[in-house]
């Protein structure tokens, strides 16, 4: 009797946790947060659940709240590596590079075989302009079997930052080979080739990315930019036109340039006006 009574709520809590995890993986972060929090009202001492809750909060850019959960998880279990990884990711977003580095170092010391941690360590090091360390971390992630496209893509970026263009291209090519239906590696390699003055090779990659994800702002911008520089103005404006997100300053900027060259003055003026009013944390005219 007692066992049944006890197992009934446990089973419903397990389902709650499964549902929360499903939402987390599907990037339905708000719902994941709600469900994790509900679960934690029953089992407040679960370091792993607090870490996943923090991850969902991080996805929602609620950085202080995510950090609180990371610290609570560490307080509950100071040998739980994923909690340090979460804290490192939050500190990276906050540009608190030293703290981020310490967290990642702790995480890989506790669990050196955790390739995800090495990947985020690499990302954090890249953002901190520590490109050599970033490369080491990505290579370690790959050595551990993280053959994901995104690791190669980021490895390419790090090599590029150090002007090691041959290695960068090799990494980008690997990323594209493993990309499947993921568009980002095509963008990364396409942009790299554009920067190297190889527009003809760049274009098919960006077109492929556009077919995979026609609504992504980065794809539209990069494809339109190459078309613009290749003199294909009509095609470039077609890629950009339509409902532009008001916070995607680069799209307004490029479209203004294209309209101006095409002599479409009133449309150019409209885009310049949008650009001047544009506010965007990830690529605006705001102070970097």
């Amino acid at each position: 009797m007692t066992g049944i009574l006890e197992s009934a709520p446990q089973s419903s809590q397990s389902r709650l946790l499964e549902e929360a995890d499903l939402n987390y993986r599907a990037l339905r972060s708000a719902e994941a947060v709600r469900l994790y929090r509900e679960y934690l009202t029953h089992y407040a001492d679960r370091a792993d659940v607090r870490t996943y809750l923090g991850g969902a909060l991080l996805n929602m850019r609620q950085l202080p709240e995510a950090l609180v959960e990371a610290n609570r998880a560490i307080a509950l279990d100071n040998r739980y590596a994923k909690a340090y990884t979460l804290a490192g990711r939050v500190y990276t977003e906050q540009q608190r590079w030293d703290l981020a580095r310490k967290c990642f170092e702790q995480a890989v010391a506790l669990e050196p075989g955790e390739r995800e941690t090495w990947y985020f360590f690499g990302r954090s090091s890249y953002d901190a302009n520590r490109f050599e360390r970033s490369i080491e971390a990505f290579l370690e992630a790959l050595r551990l079997g993280a053959g994901q496209s995104r690791v190669y893509e980021n490895l390419g970026l790090a090599y590029e930052a150090l002007s090691q263009f041959r290695d960068a291209e090799k990494a980008y090519r690997q990323a594209v080979e493993l990309a499947g239906n993921t568009y980002r590696p095509y963008v990364a390699y396409g942009v790299f080739l554009f920067k190297r003055g190889r527009m003809t090779e760049s274009l098919p990659l960006l077109e492929r990315a556009f077919r995979l994800e026609p609504n992504a702002a980065d794809v539209r911008f990069e494809l339109a930019r190459v078309l613009y520089h290749a003199g294909k103005l009509a095609e470039a404006s077609k890629v950009l036109e339509g409902s532009l997100p008001s916070n995607e300053c680069r799209l307004h900027n490029l479209l203004a340039r294209i309209f101006s060259v095409q002599g479409r003055s009133s449309e150019a003026e409209r885009e310049v006006k949008s650009l001047k009013n544009c506010r965007d944390d990830s690529g605006s005219w705001k102070e970097p």
Binding site: R225, C249, N253, R257, W285
Partner: peptide, 16 residues
């Protein structure tokens, strides 16, 4: 500068 296209780079980032 905005109208002429020299206020910002292509990617709408201001440089130092």
């Amino acid at each position: 500068a905005f109208e002429a296209g020299v206020a910002l780079k292509d990617d709408a980032k201001a440089t130092s």
